[in-house]
């Protein structure tokens, strides 16, 4: 991920807003990342390859899962391409490693983010989306907190998607 985004103070702002949605955010060094991911997952866990050199998934996270493994998994670990500080959102880009189903079918989603990819606000995010989506014709989700519904008479976290979300920010 070659993009560099302005990041002065972005982490604190992002972490504070994400916390309002019940998202647990932690900053880790590249060396600590693998152990931090291992600590964040509840087994069984599935994941998609992370795009950064020197940041690897622990062996306990199954990559290229089968549908059966996906169904059985409690945790899904995927990379976030971007985070939007104002909204506490992470951007989840669909890819051939199955990031979209892995982040969606599991009860607990662990998103791994590079601190350089935190942008301050929605206009900055949409500059990135415009360029990226026109060029790649990819798909991406702006995900804020866990899935939720109020359709059953009260707000419930954990509708069709994850019930809990955790973000590890690699700095």
């Amino acid at each position: 991920m070659a993009h560099q985004h302005s990041s002065g103070g972005g982490y604190e702002a992002f972490a504070a807003t994400a916390a309002e949605y019940g998202v647990d955010v932690r900053r880790v060094s590249p060396e600590e990342a693998e152990a931090a991911i291992e600590g964040a997952v509840d087994q069984p866990a599935v994941g998609a390859l992370l795009p950064w050199d020197g940041v690897a998934l622990p062996a306990a996270v199954t990559t290229d899962p089968t549908p059966a493994e996906l169904s059985a998994a409690t945790t899904g670990v995927t990379a976030a391409s971007l985070a939007i500080a104002d909204y506490g959102s992470v951007v989840l880009r669909a890819d051939e490693h199955g990031s979209e189903p892995i982040s969606l079918f599991t009860d607990h989603h662990v998103a791994v983010l590079h601190e350089d990819d935190i942008v301050p606000d929605m206009p900055a995010a949409f500059d990135w989306f415009g360029e990226t989506l026109r060029e790649s014709r990819d798909s991406a989700i702006i995900a804020t907190g866990p899935s939720a519904t109020a359709d059953m008479g009260a707000l419930v976290q954990g509708a069709h998607g994850p019930k809990t979300v955790e973000v590890l920010v690699v700095a």
């Binding site: 669909a94 989506l133 790649s136 798909s139 989700i141 899935s147």
Partner: peptide, 11 residues
């Protein structure tokens, strides 16, 4: 929770 920006057929 989700603003999905799908460019289908999705990759």
């Amino acid at each position: 929770s989700y603003i999905s920006l799908f460019t289908p057929p999705i990759n």
